[in-house]
Design a protein around this nucleic acid. Structure first.
Lengths: 354, 354
DNA sequence: TTGTACGCGTTATCAT
DNA sequence: ATGATAACGCGTACAA
């Protein structure tokens, strides 16, 4: 676009292009001052593209996520961007939860970037193979794929987080504990169910199939799953929602049904919501530092890029913590199970609007 | 990275590089089949960088926003990304509300992108000059700068939105109406105040200085501003918060103070929140299609890029609409001040819900 | 310190 | 339809 090249500057000053190039690289040259003014005068800007071609590097890193509209992935992107520093910029791609789009995205970024931070749609994608072919550095964030153990990754402690949540409910006295889970073919989907089941097992509680709702990590999915749970003859007294969006959906369904948190049902979600402390009751959640997770992914990638390509794949984990607020309480046994009638009193409250 | 180039393929097949290049461009060549297998065999991938150098185009568009963690800007980015199509990818930059970083960002993206979508930090930045120097297509989104009328832009109808909100409060019977405004040096900050004042003027209401709180579009800013309003001797009966984040902050402050919405105070915000309908009471807001706005910006840019560089600067506007939910009601005069009885007849209608 | 000249991987022009 | 070759803009080894 700029059309004024290094030769224009050279001619203007009356030196060779090499001299200009050296000046640009910070080397000491004779006519520094003349060159400076010539550059300013001509409004010369070095061509990034030409430099890329020479150097073989692009100064760009791709961040590929399934759903930017999910605040979780926004935060990942934000963390990665902030950690990129002055040296690298981030190329953002949304795969819209489609494996097809994900693979095309990988094809599209190839050659434009020096590395990739990928949150794959699910574990079935063949992304790793793609990259092992070409030797592009890649780090997986939040989610893995088959064979991805050969690559760097930054996960969260999914199992522990889910166990923490479930145990909390158990300790409050619940035993009819449901889970609204993400897709079992995703890493967090699978592992959070594992944590849930671990906790039940340790408490010698049986994992009842009707309390397991596999959903899709979306708000509407969470809504429908919660609806289903509420329609059960013997509905759970507590539920663990496996991600932020589904927690919102579940909340919606609960609000709509007119039952109250935590009196009628306890709710705990994986990942905090920025309004969790504002609503009534404030939501108890399993939380983690998402931006940090994104930043760590970027840092691992930068390490690779800085030549330390040798060391074996690193697998980092971000800690979780439970933030107790007001959405979990001991179960009330007044109305509960026993004999099918349980839910008859539910429709006693005539809130129809909204 | 791939190190296998077009000449490798050419040698393998036994033709010249020109032939391979032609095959790649879709022209008909003799040994199509041989070439195909050679490419697959060698795992050859054309160098994007080399192509960029030749063509002078990068296939990339920069999207520069002040704060990706703000869901509003996330949605802008998302809209832009989705509208980019197969031809372009988006390079994301966060300026973290710093003019310095914004200008450095412009410098960094220069040469790497074919165009820019910019939401400037404020109207004081000299970004437009920067671009007019180099002739890089740019479209402003959501915010303008001085002299930016010479460039494409996609705004929202700020004045109308603010007027709508304020008028709604007036019609409910409020006359002690406060605004928590964004920075006056930003476009939405300035124009939403204008709309607020317009509405007051049309109703022959005086804009009282103590009811004007200039804040910074952040959650904590909204929180503090609302705190200040609540501490007033004669506190407002209604407040209009000029963006999403400040609405959240205001909500926090109100919750904390123990007064109730809408009985003690009415609240209406500019821009919807994804949990606005979940909380109690659900929030009345001025809403717009943010993703559409981002998508429009991208489309305008693509139009320019497709050669229609000639037509004069376009200034599009996205429509707003009010979504009435439950956070605004007629003022209750039980506890309040002296004798502004004027609007007493309005609270005869007990519309509280939805 | 400076200049010359080649190469980075492609595409496009010009002959053939 | 194909081949040779000159650009694209820059960095750098080499020689001076």
């Amino acid at each position: 676009v700029s059309s004024v090249t290094i030769v224009d500057v050279a001619q203007r000053v009356g030196v060779s292009v090499a001299t200009i190039s050296r000046y640009l690289s910070g080397l000491t040259v004779r006519q520094e001052e003349d060159i400076r003014v010539a550059i300013a005068d001509l409004k010369y800007r070095p061509s990034v593209t030409a430099r890329n071609l020479k150097s073989g590097r692009t100064g760009t890193i791709a961040v590929i996520v399934p759903d930017i509209s999910n605040p979780f992935f926004s935060a990942i992107v934000q963390g990665a961007e902030s950690a990129a520093g002055d040296e690298y910029m981030v190329l953002l791609v949304n795969t819209a939860d489609s494996n097809d789009r994900e693979e095309r995205a990988l094809g599209k970024v190839f050659g434009r970037v020096d590395g990739v931070i990928l949150a794959p749609n699910n574990e079935m994608t063949k992304s790793p193979n793609f990259f092992s072919n070409f030797g592009l550095p890649i780090v997986f964030v939040d989610r893995l794929t088959e064979n991805s153990e050969n690559f760097d990754s930054v996960l969260v402690d999914n199992v522990r987080g889910a166990e923490l949540a479930t145990r909390h409910l158990i300790e409050l006295g619940h035993f009819k504990i449901a889970i609204i889970s993400g897709p079992m073919e995703t890493t967090p989907g699978k592992l959070r169910v594992e944590g849930y089941r671990n906790a039940l097992k340790k408490a010698k509680l049986r994992a009842q199939p009707e309390y397991f709702q596999e959903s899709d990590f979306s708000q509407s999915g969470g809504y429908q799953a919660m609806k289903a749970l509420l329609n059960l003859a013997e509905r759970p007294t507590a539920v663990f929602t496996a991600n932020n969006l589904m927690t919102i959906g579940a909340l919606e369904a609960i609000r709509e049904s007119g039952i109250s948190i935590p009196d009628d049902i306890s709710l705990i979600g994986f990942d905090d919501l920025d309004f969790a402390h504002i609503i009534e009751p404030p939501l108890t959640v399993i939380s983690r530092d998402v931006r940090l997770q994104g930043a760590k992914a970027m840092e691992m990638l930068l390490d690779r890029l800085r030549g330390n390509v040798s060391f074996p794949p690193q697998h980092q984990m971000v800690e979780v913590q439970m933030i107790e607020r007001g959405s979990c309480a001991a179960p009330s046994f007044g109305n509960s199970h026993g004999l099918g009638i349980s839910s008859s009193l539910k429709n006693s409250n005539p809130r129809s609007n909204n």
